[in-house]
Design a protein around this nucleic acid. Sequence first.
DNA 1: CTTAATGTTCAATGATCCTTGAACTAATGA
DNA 2: TCATTAGTTCAAGGATCATTGAACATTAAG
Lengths: 122, 122
Amino acid sequence: MTDYLPHPPVEYIALPAVLSALGDETRLAIIAILARNGERAMTCGQFLQFGSKTAISYHVAKLREAGIIHVRPEGTKRLLTLRRGDLESRFPGFLDTVIASTAATLPYDNLGTPEAAQFAGE
Amino acid sequence: MTDYLPHPPVEYIALPAVLSALGDETRLAIIAILARNGERAMTCGQFLQFGSKTAISYHVAKLREAGIIHVRPEGTKRLLTLRRGDLESRFPGFLDTVIASTAATLPYDNLGTPEAAQFAGE
DNA sequence: CTTAATGTTCAATGATCCTTGAACTAATGA
DNA sequence: TCATTAGTTCAAGGATCATTGAACATTAAG
């Protein structure tokens, strides 16, 4: 319970770091899905569709270090949540526009929809 | 006059590419200043405070290839403008929130202001 | 024509990124 | 205790990044 991972305090969250953390398809997919999931926390294991355990661990650490998500150990799992409030207070409107943009843009957001097919190339 | 540089059409502008292009302090400073400058075009030379000619050329190309700015040759100069309309239509609200966030965040936006001093370290 | 101004291109360099597999830790469960 | 689940750490590798200086191209100005 006193096993917390390092998270930047809200006033240390830096825009270039946030932007470059989000400038990766895998990480963008992760935060889009976290956002779609509302307040419910998710685990690393739920993102294995996007890469190996090692890769997900790496990307999750990037997102945490940039201040975009919060990671709380619970048993052998990690509970991931978006730092919505912190991001909103530091960069008002930013995260919402990114989330909204991913909905219109990212292949991963169409998982299971008929439109999913057209994203083979490019 | 038929010497146009390649720009992605608006429907090809991709969010991850835009985010990672902006995930760099130099490029973020460039677009913040372009935005502050309104509709007036600027030249590469006006950004030499942020790096060598070569470096600016490199960063400007990145921004152009990501679809964030438009570059028009005029004489020996390049006229740079933000693709505000294109970005707004593709990712509504996004650019505005980024610009607004840089105002509160970036050292470069404080050029010439009394607050500029406190940004030595970090 | 000569020179200056404005950028681009190229090769080199060191840094950072993303991925992989193997080994590992920690907590859970039979 | 022994095995399983969930994730981390490490070393290695190839790819991309950002910077530099030298050489170059183009346009403008004297």
